[in-house]
Design a binder for these strands. Structure first.
Length: 677
RNA sequence: UGGUCUAUGGUGUAACUGGCAACACGUCUGAUUUUGGUUCAGAAGAGUCUAGGUUCGAGCCCUAGUAGACCAACCA
């Protein structure tokens, strides 16, 4: 047996390489650096799992560092929420740090920069500075204050710090290169004046460092070895390094910034600004609305920490743009909950079922398995009686062959109870079914071991006893957006894609008695329906359950399929533009050399057919197809033969292509080329 | 239009110093099943954006294209 080689992501490759080059493992140190201006989402989970995962893997400390350099946006509420979420995910940070812890050090370094002539105080308006900055394609121009004497800079900066100037009136800028192709190097701002109270430093400061100045230096102070961030900071790296150069002491560790792609999830948005907008416009109930891709939303929805960590693990880390399918996230939570969730029964859309041969007033207590996946999970008691609720969708007067549920004259099993047969229905004046009357087989009780109890029946239904069930609210969720990538449309605002039916509230679901004791944080499988968790909105009088995710439902898929075919014909060709024919030929041709027998023949004939719609102008460029792509050359040769038959005149290019075909080592290509003339 | 980055089945990721393109989700069969769930067995689906080149051999190296992303906040 070969050990499967552990596959590393590119960050791990970098670390391994560093280690091989002599970097000592004890010096490895990471950090997760959120700005406390919003809640963490599933995209952050990727970064959290990356950094803390690396910490676990290499036994290295990981700091939680709040990047709190902007008192105008940041709040303690977010700090608390972020800490709660990371802890909930099961990670422990080595130290809780704040960029604001380093304000004094940062200030001292700034003074040093000024003294070295590497920073100056500017006093222009933001418009002036912006216009001097140039554009990505044109160089910027120097500020008139760029060469202010050191002494004057020192004096002004001192006054900035002392609060002698109005907000926005003065700035400290690094003196780098106004002509750099990297916009971030065009004399970036180090400090601005903000007259706001900071959540940690209060009114101690009125000048605040910018991200670039604070971030890299914070990494340095903490001696973070690998500073991982998302791709949009790639362009900042040059500045990160420049700042570091100014303060770096070779006796210490020098942090390195590396960038990876942020994780996107289909049918949702992943930017704090947009999530905030959903909250502020009351499109959702809050940051922790179960439809939100936030950690707190997922938690409330019923996702487990393990499922989110698993999702991050299987999603991986890379540098390309991505939109991960939500089905992967759903797979992760189903997999986790299948192993652990207690099985219970609840009916969401009830119809009354009367067992006419069951004694009136009698209650039978049945045992139901807590979890068939776990033999040690035991059973719990479920009351059974003459009048039950089952799901309305589980009955059809005439179900047909593929309907494995209850229909007139047919038998099904009631889960953990008896086998019943439907006999008649009672309808109201509108024709809607009010009651289903059935009879049960007294000998068939589940687990009784009788022959009748092991009888094969068409299906098994979940149910609740009307007398014993209690009412609860159930909230079902669908994707928040109808578009796979709602914020990827230049011409449309993401809010246009909000799914109006993302929340479905069932006021009166009927649940088995054991669920009265449900706790927030525990997970249940409502048999045949999905996984559910108690919502914190629950009160003693009224419980509220959130549907975390449905069970896989191949029946629903089957039922939907024919309808979809009607409304959305996915058939290509026909009304497609002509250009498609050529690319379709290329598509088919590619795999030609893998085919044989009938498959090869059908491929060839479809190429011949498609060739009817191809013009010589489209075909000719493909004569140059490289020799190793035999399949494509065969396809092109076939198409050529059709054109020639249709009267295409011979020319040197064609001649040459055919000759090359005749001399090819591939038999099929040879054969076709020779057939042409 | 300048700079930087990225391109591998429908989706997300692998493929170590070039050596039969792998895994997971999804999709489709079939078996098992007191959940149309789970589990099990299997299948389809990519010549790695295009065109050249180097090489015995290229997803990987080189050249030129193409497409997408990011960069001009006193945000992070």
């Amino acid at each position: 047996m070969k050990e499967p080689i552990e596959s590393l992501n590119f960050i791990e490759h970098i670390i391994e390489e560093d280690l091989e080059n002599g970097f000592s493992q004890e010096k490895l140190r990471f950090r997760f650096p959120p700005e406390p201006n919003g809640y963490l989402h599933i995209g952050h989970a990727a970064s959290i799992c990356l950094n803390f995962g690396l910490g676990e893997k290499y036994n290295a400390p990981v700091n939680l560092r709040f990047d709190d350099t902007n008192p105008a946006k940041e709040e303690q509420e977010y700090v608390d929420a972020i800490k709660r979420d990371i802890a909930w995910l099961g990670f422990q940070w080595a130290q809780e740090c704040y960029s604001s812890d380093y304000f004094q050090q940062l200030y001292d370094w700034a003074i040093q920069l000024i003294k070295e002539g590497k920073a100056y105080v500017d006093q222009q308006s933001s418009e002036q500075i912006a216009s001097q900055k140039g554009t990505p394609t044109t160089a910027g121009t120097d500020s008139p204050y760029r060469n202010r004497p050191v002494e004057e800079n020192l004096e002004l900066f001192e006054k900035m710090k002392n609060g002698e100037f109005a907000a926005g009136s003065y700035l400290l800028r690094a003196k780098i290169d106004m002509a750099s192709p990297n916009m971030h190097m065009r004399d970036p701002i180090l400090y601005r004046i903000i007259n706001k109270s900071h959540h940690r430093t209060g009114n101690e400061w009125c000048i605040y460092p910018m991200y670039d100045w604070a971030h890299g230096q914070s990494d340095y102070v903490e001696q973070v070895s690998h500073s991982l961030c998302t791709l949009e900071f790639k362009a900042h790296r040059e500045l990160y390094d420049w700042y570091l150069d100014q303060v770096y002491d070779p006796a210490t560790l020098r942090p390195k910034q590396r960038e990876f792609a942020r994780r996107n999830l289909s049918y949702t948005v992943m930017s704090k600004r947009k999530l905030l907008e959903l909250v502020q416009k009351n499109i959702v109930s809050g940051w922790d609305d179960p439809r939100m891709p936030t950690i707190s939303g997922l938690r409330r929805r019923g996702y487990t920490p393990d499922s989110i960590r698993k999702f991050s693990e299987v999603s991986g880390i890379s540098k390309r743009d991505n939109v991960t399918d939500v089905s992967l996230l759903e797979y992760c939570i189903r997999e986790d909950l299948n192993k652990s969730a207690t099985r219970v029964m609840g009916v969401l859309n009830p119809v009354k079922l009367v067992i006419t041969n069951f004694p009136e007033g009698k209650t039978e207590i049945l045992a139901m398995e807590n979890n068939p996946e776990d033999p040690n999970s035991g059973t719990h008691e479920v009351p059974f009686s003459r009048e039950l609720y089952i799901e309305r969708e589980d009955f059809r007067e005439d179900g047909g062959k593929k309907f494995f549920r209850l229909s007139l004259g047919n038998e099904v099993r009631l889960k953990s109870a008896y086998i019943i047969q439907a006999n008649s229905v009672v309808k109201d004046e509108k024709g809607e079914i009010q009651e289903i009357h059935c009879t049960y087989d007294e000998e068939s009780r589940s687990g009784s071991g009788t022959e009748a109890s092991t009888r094969k029946v068409k299906g098994t239904l979940h149910w609740v006893s009307i007398e014993h069930a209690f009412k609860a609210e159930v909230r079902e969720y669908d994707r928040l957006f109808l578009d796979e990538a709602p914020d990827s449309h230049e011409d449309k605002n993401f809010l246009e894609f909000v799914n109006p039916d993302s929340l479905n509230v069932i006021q009166e679901a009927y649940l088995e008695p054991i669920l009265k004791d449900a706790q927030v944080g525990s997970h249940f499988q409502f048999q045949r329906l999905g996984y559910f968790a108690l919502d914190p909105d629950s009160t003693a009088d009224k419980l509220v359950f959130n549907k975390t995710v449905g069970l896989k439902d191949t029946w629903a898929k089957q039922e939907k399929a024919p309808a979809q075919n009607q409304s959305q014909p996915k058939a290509p060709s026909q009304n497609q533009p002509k250009k498609k024919a050529m690319s379709e030929i290329q598509q088919i041709s590619k795999k030609l050399t893998n085919l044989s027998g009938d498959k090869l023949e059908t491929a060839k004939s479809s190429i011949l057919k498609l060739a009817e719609e191809v013009s010589y102008e489209e075909l000719e460029p493909l004569f140059g197809t490289s020799v190793k792509k035999v399949g494509t050359r065969i396809g092109v040769m076939l198409a050529l033969s059709v054109l020639l038959e249709k009267g295409q005149e011979m020319n040197p290019a064609i001649q040459e292509f055919i000759e090359s075909g005749k001399n090819d080592s591939n038999e099929l290509l040879k054969e076709i080329s020779e057939k042409i003339n």
